[in-house]
Amino acid sequence: MSELFSRIDHARTADEVVRRIEDLILEGILRSGDRLPGERELASMFDVSRPILRDALKQLEARGLLVSRHGGGTRVADIIGEVFTQPVMELISGHGKATADYLEFRREIEGVAARLAAERATPDDRVLLSGILDRMRAAHERADFDEEARLDVEFHGAIGECAHNIILLHTLRSCYRLLADGVFFNRTLIYRLAGARDALLEQHLAIGDAVLAGKPASALEAARRHIDFVESAIAKAERADNWQKVSRLRLAQRSRDHRNV
């Protein structure tokens, strides 16, 4: 934590503190919901007076980057996902074409992110990514669907972080917020398809391994193949789900017919 909020070497002003915290948020180091240290501790870390720190935090709160709650400390505001406001999300969730467009966009942007990640990932990035891949394997072995779904989002977010492009990072986070919230499709439908969970794990490992090995072309292609599979699996899962609904209604109707005979 002390490395995060290190001593400010320049002029110790509120503006310098604001800039330091802005950078941490912009680079994705501080994420939505992360709690800052207490005022006394944070002032000591930055080596600034408490009035200067207080002024900086007020500026950041006024701009909607931080939120303070009585007894809950100061946290990074939930700013990710505002690329798609709630009215827009409600609008696009009801239109089938939006899902196809969403996946088309993800196919291209995730390919770029994976390529850049393979080129730019640092040793620390590789440690983080390797840990996520290990947890994905473990969750798969336990057949923990909820954990697999959560790690799916975390994995793709980590690839975006490894790309070291702040615009790309926050755009991807907005996309994954929609994914986590189930705006476009229900991922549990995909998990019900025979072999889908195995295929998804293999695809994630292929992307991760290419990034870890520093192979940009392989990472890009693996990311695109992954989205192609997701698109195909969604179509199959939705079709199978519709068949099941029709079959259930048909069976219920036949049962009523037999009772009335």
Score class of each variant (00 low, 15 high):
R7H: 15
T13C: 10
L26G: 13
E27S: 12
I29G: 02
G33L: 09
D34R: 09
E39M: 11
E39V: 03
E41F: 03
R50A: 13
D55I: 01
K58M: 08
E61R: 12
A62Y: 03
R63D: 06
V67K: 09
G72H: 13
T74Q: 01
T74W: 00
T74F: 00
T74R: 03
V76T: 09
T85S: 12
P87S: 12
P87F: 11
M89R: 14
E90S: 12
G94I: 01
K97D: 14
K97T: 11
L116C: 06
A117M: 06
E119A: 10
A121Q: 05
D124N: 05
D125E: 14
V127T: 13
S130W: 09
D134E: 14
E141H: 09
D144C: 10
E147C: 02
L151Q: 05
L151M: 06
F155I: 11
G160I: 04
N165R: 11
L169P: 00
L169D: 00
L169G: 03
H170M: 04
L172C: 03
L172H: 00
C175Q: 07
L178F: 04
L179V: 13
A180P: 01
A180R: 08
D181L: 14
V183E: 01
F184E: 00
N186P: 03
R187N: 08
R197C: 07
Q203H: 15
L212I: 13
L212Q: 08
A213Y: 01
K215M: 13
K215D: 14
K215V: 04
P216G: 02
L220D: 01
D228T: 12
S232C: 06
A233K: 00
K236H: 10
A237F: 06
A237C: 12
N242Q: 15
N242Y: 08
D257F: 11
H258P: 00
